[in-house]
Design a protein around this nucleic acid. Structure first.
Lengths: 165, 165
DNA sequence: GCGTCACTGTTGAACTTTCAAACAGTAAGG
DNA sequence: CCTTACTGTTTGAAAGTTCAACAGTGACGC
């Protein structure tokens, strides 16, 4: 059954191992840095960051799930936690009463502002400071190429129908 | 205090957002594919894969932690689970009685062999099939550059001293 | 030998994520 | 209306990860 499998070439294999190691370590490093210096995991930072860049600092739960590439269940649990911490506020949506708005509070914005410099420094140290300008462009092109199949791939969607237009 | 922060340039920011999205989605896609077709999460597949490529299909727990870029605690829990499933066997190390060997069982090898083709296909579809040969080389170079600071960075090490030679 | 310190691995509690199921609201057809 | 299907969100249990604490060894100096 696997006679037809196209295994990886030596170059692909080397690239793959380096990719897995680098992304795993980078993720861990960023998570640890945030946890240590700001007391929040990377996933929560990303939620706060997304909310901060949007009009009225408010998004519907499902939009938040889409934009952070996570499942609705995860967002629901995470926002519940952030709400307990006073960083996010949940409000019903008047137009569609199925929907809920998540709004960044001033305290949440302050926590984000306090965490941001350290996070950016960490991203810089571990990624951009070791790449040439050319490599930054190459990386962006590579990632954009990956996004094609990934955004179409049913495997990549956390929740069926989460990306419905 | 954050006056001195070097924020990301527009190019860096674009690259960063694409990178986060692509790696998050790729990770999710691979995990789902394995979970669905082989009934195991990606993290466990990687443990089995590492064990399968080593003499006697046996590694010390700490070596396994190093090679998979994960913490000792994580490996301990994961191997305990894999052992319950009959895919890995734990044995005491005669030379150093602190150490424990983790050995891939025939059943574990069979499970890995059954899972591998689908996994490789998924890696191909979502990564290598959308990249040119040139881009594969660029990606490898970029990841190798990242590994420099990451392997030296204390943030990136799950457990202090885990990488001691 | 003995004390000290580093190293290996495990454990249990806390936390996060996932999975499946439930729930409430909306939309469409008869 | 009533039914049916679908959408947006929540929930609780199960699974996985992390963290801190612990126990058992080994290595080194005195």
């Amino acid at each position: 059954m696997d006679e037809g499998t196209r295994w990886l070439t030596a170059e692909e294999r080397a690239a793959w191992l380096a990719f897995v190691a680098a992304t795993t370590l980078l993720d861990g490093a960023l998570d640890r840095q945030l946890q240590r210096e700001a007391g929040m995991p990377l996933a929560y930072y990303q939620i706060l960051a997304m909310l901060s860049e949007v009009p009225a600092r408010t998004l519907r739960m499902s939009e938040l799930a889409d934009i952070t590439q996570s499942s609705q269940s995860r967002i629901s649990h995470a926002v519940a936690r952030l709400e307990r911490q006073g960083w996010v506020l949940r409000r019903p949506c008047p137009d569609d009463r199925r929907s809920t708005f998540a709004e960044l509070t001033p305290a949440g914005l302050a926590a984000l502002a306090a965490a941001a410099p350290g996070h950016v420094r960490s991203v810089r140290e571990n990624l951009f400071d070791v790449l040439s300008t050319e490599q930054v462009g190459q990386l962006a092109a590579i990632c954009r190429a990956m996004l094609g199949p990934l955004t179409a791939d049913p495997d990549a969607r956390p929740v069926p129908g989460a990306c419905a237009d």
